[in-house]
Design a protein around this nucleic acid. Structure first.
Lengths: 202, 202, 202, 202
DNA sequence: AATGAATGAGCTTTCATTCAT
DNA sequence: AATGAATGAAAGCTCATTCAT
């Protein structure tokens, strides 16, 4: 019925189909949630048909998993880079804490999917994701423990709990942060990292 | 069919039907999420029929809203009580911050529903809930501003952001806290309140 | 929840419950159709509860049948009166034909129910209604045949068909006639009776 | 499940699915009425599944609208053809009046649906149908007015009302006409057209 | 005479997925 | 690489009716 040119108007130099599908899915999952997004809506937004989707992805679930994978890889890489620099530990923690905030805000769609739709993944894939999350969490905790052992951070609170304290606030960003708001992503990040560092003062 | 044996096995002293429905819904929504819980599952868990559910609640959505209402009322009452005591402001903030943690852990089901399923409420009801949330948020913020004006809390971070920082961690509790874990609810609460107060030291 | 005074506002000197129910049902059946009107809506419009309805009527179907009964009795009585007057047959037919139009317009709700909802009656009751209809039809036909035998009406068309021709237009009234329109009920009636008589001119 | 035997027994040379659905729906709607016909019954009669129905039609309502569309188009085309012939106006009116009777009898199912189920269409679609009805009505009325102006038809009755008089009888056909009855469709048509023309004699 | 909680069967519609082409 | 017709299971919700009180 519609000409093959009838695709997302703003994708003039047409991206490859799988990417188009992932982009459409990300936008829609973030917008209405995973369960409320139908496969039909995804393929329509991507300008393809169902057959194409099932050609590239085994299931709707796979799409979600793919989105998770992208975020997880990105954040792990960045944390690794910040954590292994040769700056003093306070600086490394501050940088890592601020960076995860900026990255989260820059990918707010992925973030809200991440924090809202995990339990809609199949059991298997949830396990996988949780394992990768744990790696991330542990890397971050190691940074705090390093500072505690070095005596530059207070030991009043178990490092574990501190990590959860910080990530709670990152998680929460998609609830309240709106692009174009009062603060730039960097300002928010600096404030949140500052709060963390202040809470850790001995 | 209406014999007294026809009840949930573990509810020996049969509760009224609406309460039984709310309890079943809470458990299931927290467990599998709102969208993944069918009305059929709820009524089966409550030991009644669909007709009974729709006799008391206008829609599945109404059940969710009812659950929200309970939590919101409870938390607002407690915050009001703590905030208006005549202890010094540091104490009042610490008490309020710790109490919301304990209450959240005590109602972890309600909490995970709260933070995960808000966007599945109808637009109207979301507005209502958001308005009540705002009231709560503002009361909490007022406490921080009071301390800032009194010079006992740092003004380095806008009070708004501090509130979101703390509530991020409360929100996050349902992700990681498991009853019977290493720390009691009170211990977690004390640690998190402590982190907040430490972050606010001038 | 509502005081016993909370009934249809305009029924100040409260009619008996069965009449109130019939009136409400008539209005609603005419408005949305029998199948689209719920028992709940009827009892609400009548200001009573379901129990009351089922106290007076055996079923929803009974209500409809009752409405039919009222109309049938009324129209049969009037036809009998007009047909058995001692005016000339042309006059008697003209009067009867015009009267059924006026009566139908005066009870447009009953009429639209009558012509639209017959097939929603139970088989038994449909038979009953059809039998009464037939009596009415035959009385009317007899009038036409009388005129044909007397030579004042054309015999070009079988009397049966003439009856259906006229009742088609009566039936149709509820489709197009709107109170307050260009013509009064009496004017419409005169025109339609006139058309019938003109068609019957030898 | 998809073997060629899995078809309506009497549809040996299998028609396309949408046509099969429309045919089944038409038969059932005429038989039991729109509201009393379930989607389940339609798909069973058509030998397909619900999914197939919703693949081709957006809703049950759409099916009804489609049936209407077919009838409206057919009748409008025929009226246009008869009305614009170059016969004298009496002949053209007689032909058109008789033809709508024959066509209605030939499609008695569509006709009873048409006259009984209009108010069960969605508001939007009702508007559309009423607009097309009006066009038809106006074309017919123009014919009468033409004859009145030419002095070959009486002006005693407004043309509008004459149209409603005739269409009432057409509408009514599905109530009393049974195929295989005393008169052929053409005989009925000739009688009814004759009544109309006789009524219009000056 | 009347209530209203509860039933149970049925309703229309949605949807992820499959598969012949 | 991609289509789109078709499936089949399940979803949320409605409703006439019953019945203990």
């Amino acid at each position: 019925m519609t000409s093959p040119a009838n695709q997302r108007q703003d994708d003039a130099p047409t991206q490859p189909v799988p990417q188009r599908l992932l982009a459409a899915a990300t936008r829609l999952f973030a917008d209405r949630g995973y369960d409320r997004t139908s496969v039909q809506e995804i393929v329509e937004a991507a300008g393809v048909t169902k057959g194409a989707l099932y050609h590239y992805f085994g299931s709707k679930d796979d799409l979600l998993h793919e989105i998770y994978g992208r975020v997880l890889r990105l954040q792990q890489e960045r944390l690794d880079a910040f954590a292994s620099s040769d700056a003093p530990v306070e600086q490394r923690l501050r940088d890592a804490a601020a960076d995860v905030v900026v990255t989260t805000i820059d990918n707010l769609d992925d973030a809200s999917i991440f924090f809202r739709s995990m339990h809609q993944l199949s059991e298997d894939k949830q396990k996988q994701v949780r394992a990768e999350r744990r790696r991330y969490h542990e890397r971050f905790r190691a940074l705090i423990e390093e500072g505690q052992e070095a005596g530059v951070f207070s030991t009043a609170t178990p490092a574990d709990l501190v990590v959860d304290y910080h990530f709670g606030s990152v998680h929460h960003l998609s609830t309240w942060y709106r692009p174009g708001g009062r603060m730039t992503p960097q300002e928010v990040a600096d404030h949140l990292a500052d709060l963390l560092l202040r809470a850790l003062r001995p």
